[in-house]
Amino acid sequence: MHEMSIAMAVVGQVEEAARAGAASAVSRVELQVGELAGVVPDALAFCFELACAGTVLEGAELVTRSVTARARCGACAGEWPVGMPPDLCCPACGRATEVELLSGRELRVLNVTWEDAEDGPPAVPCREPISEEA
């Protein structure tokens, strides 16, 4: 189950950011997950809870934001949702040789909410992906 390795990587990266930000606890992690990333959200949520045990993230809520897989045809510029399993044949012109995948492989931390020892819980937007795209 690769969801456990994903959960452990997310926890490790968020822990590192929380330490750097002098956080006392992390209460929420928002994760962007592409439709084609091969991640089962329920399995990831289960693994995330286990991976958080004994860390500054213990008890943190995991929120996943799904990203629909979309493609564009280089021949006719048509765009479409590719679905699951992915249909990479252009519905407008029928070509499958010049297809560009626009979205659907994302796997990144979007936001982390943590509590500072002094101030309370700020939301920390992640402008750069903490996790590498799959």
Rank of each mutant, 00 (worst) to 15 (best):
72 R>C: 05
81 P>N: 08
60 A>H: 05
72 R>F: 00
15 E>I: 00
2 H>K: 01
113 T>S: 08
120 G>R: 09
4 M>I: 14
134 A>Y: 07
48 F>N: 05
119 D>M: 04
47 C>V: 09
120 G>D: 04
90 C>P: 07
45 A>I: 11
70 R>C: 09
120 G>Y: 03
120 G>E: 03
60 A>D: 07
70 R>F: 03
130 I>R: 12
53 A>C: 04
77 A>H: 13
36 L>A: 15
26 V>R: 02
90 C>L: 04
45 A>M: 09
49 E>M: 11
52 C>R: 13
123 A>G: 05
72 R>T: 05
107 L>H: 02
75 A>Q: 10
24 S>D: 09
75 A>G: 07
108 R>E: 05
102 L>I: 07
7 A>R: 08
55 T>L: 08
18 A>V: 09
92 A>P: 01
73 C>D: 12
99 V>N: 04
17 A>K: 15
74 G>F: 02
43 A>P: 00
65 R>W: 03
66 S>K: 08
56 V>L: 15
30 E>V: 15
89 C>F: 01
15 E>C: 09
59 G>Q: 09
73 C>Q: 11
76 C>V: 03
27 S>M: 11
44 L>C: 04
123 A>N: 08
41 P>K: 04
5 S>L: 12
91 P>R: 05
45 A>K: 15
74 G>C: 03
75 A>E: 11
47 C>S: 15
9 A>C: 03
56 V>G: 02
27 S>T: 15
74 G>P: 05
36 L>S: 15
74 G>E: 01
39 V>G: 02
3 E>P: 06
18 A>D: 13
51 A>H: 11
70 R>I: 00
29 V>M: 14
25 A>G: 10
131 S>G: 00
94 G>K: 01
100 E>Y: 00
71 A>R: 01
45 A>T: 15
7 A>S: 07
5 S>E: 13
102 L>E: 03
12 G>Q: 14
19 R>F: 14
134 A>T: 06
31 L>N: 11
27 S>A: 14
127 R>Q: 09
1 M>P: 12
77 A>Q: 14
8 M>F: 10
75 A>Y: 01
118 E>D: 11
107 L>K: 02
53 A>R: 14
4 M>A: 14
108 R>I: 04
95 R>F: 02
59 G>M: 07
19 R>P: 04
69 A>Q: 09
34 G>R: 12
24 S>C: 03
34 G>E: 09
3 E>H: 07
23 A>D: 10
50 L>C: 14
65 R>N: 05
82 V>R: 09
41 P>A: 02
6 I>M: 04
127 R>A: 13
3 E>A: 07
110 L>F: 00
113 T>N: 01
76 C>G: 02
8 M>Y: 10
115 E>C: 06
106 E>L: 10
42 D>H: 08
2 H>C: 09
68 T>V: 15
99 V>L: 08
123 A>P: 04
92 A>Y: 08
84 M>R: 13
53 A>F: 04
74 G>A: 03
12 G>S: 13
102 L>D: 01
65 R>V: 11
21 G>D: 14
126 C>L: 13
96 A>N: 02
129 P>K: 06
100 E>S: 00
83 G>Q: 06
83 G>R: 07
74 G>T: 01
123 A>F: 00
82 V>P: 06
107 L>C: 04
76 C>P: 02
100 E>I: 00
68 T>L: 14
124 V>R: 11
115 E>R: 13
105 R>C: 09
